[in-house]
Design a protein around this nucleic acid. Structure first.
Lengths: 157, 157
DNA sequence: ACTGAAAGCTGTCGCGT
DNA sequence: ACGCGACAGCTTTCAGT
């Protein structure tokens, strides 16, 4: 799955990570290529799955989502079917913006974004806990976002 | 910090979260406004800080970053100066793509993205542990990304 | 492979409603 | 506040080096 990337690709990727709306001509002078070449490479990188998508990054607080919580979930047993059903349930919950399967006792970590603590309590008690197979959950609230890079550490080109 | 958003704003935000490169005319027919109005509203939303930025979302594996780890860090004591120095150190580490301060015993959770386990070990032992004030760290490796929404759950417009 | 120019669209700005 | 229209700028494609 890793793709062959040359120095220009890496500089392009760094640029579009930092500014996803930079024009091709702006990117061109930033990486030292022509605009059309930037366009081609971007198309190739999208095609190859290196670029998964493009999006606006929103401010949670500004859209009324005041609480971000991390929820550690432990399932009872790990038969495939149970896990798959759990995954499907997570996919259907918009408050769950991310779900990771971790080392350790095969725990999940969920990132849950909701308007307030009341909404979080309702989510945890009425929607998450009742899911079949959920043995226990443990939650932490995010007090402060100390760093949010949002961009991956690319090797230098 | 929450901003007054009407239904059009919410639909616009949902649209640009899903596709950050949609043209204004495409957004226009999607939300039921004219293109110029979409442009104006987007400018206002950026100005107000609702839209923090625009970026390409990359695939970690495809760019050679095979390991994502979550690192829980506990500091020795919590005087302001120590915490600030720690924050500055995190800001200077590109492998740390995110750092959250959590409830509990004022622990930090870091998301660390590196090429492989060897690089992670080097990072944890040689760069993170030696930071002044770091009392202990505990790491989990991400085995699987079960869900990655990347977009916030906006209230319906 | 990359560059450069031409054609088609898009974003932007002002005005009218 | 919103929509419409003109101009400038950008994306895209195609031919050339």
């Amino acid at each position: 799955m890793p793709v062959a990337l040359d120095g220009f690709d890496l500089r392009l990727l760094a640029a579009v990570q930092a500014d996803g709306r930079a024009s091709h001509v702006a990117l061109a002078e930033r990486v030292g290529l022509s605009a059309s070449q930037c366009a081609r490479r971007l198309a190739r990188l999208e095609q190859a799955g290196v670029i998964r998508g493009w999006q606006a990054v929103l401010d949670e607080k500004a859209v009324g989502l005041g609480v971000t919580a991390l929820v550690f979930v432990r399932l009872e047993r790990h038969d495939e079917g149970r896990a798959a059903a759990f995954h499907r349930a997570l996919a259907a919950m918009p408050e769950v913006t991310e779900a990771l399967l971790l080392t350790g006792d095969a725990d999940y970590l969920l990132r849950v974004v909701v308007p307030d603590l009341e909404a979080f309590a309702a989510f945890a008690l009425r929607r998450l806990m009742p899911l079949p197979g959920v043995a226990s959950i443990r939650s932490s609230i995010v007090l402060e976002t100390v760093k949010r890079a949002g961009s991956l550490p690319l090797p230098r080109g």
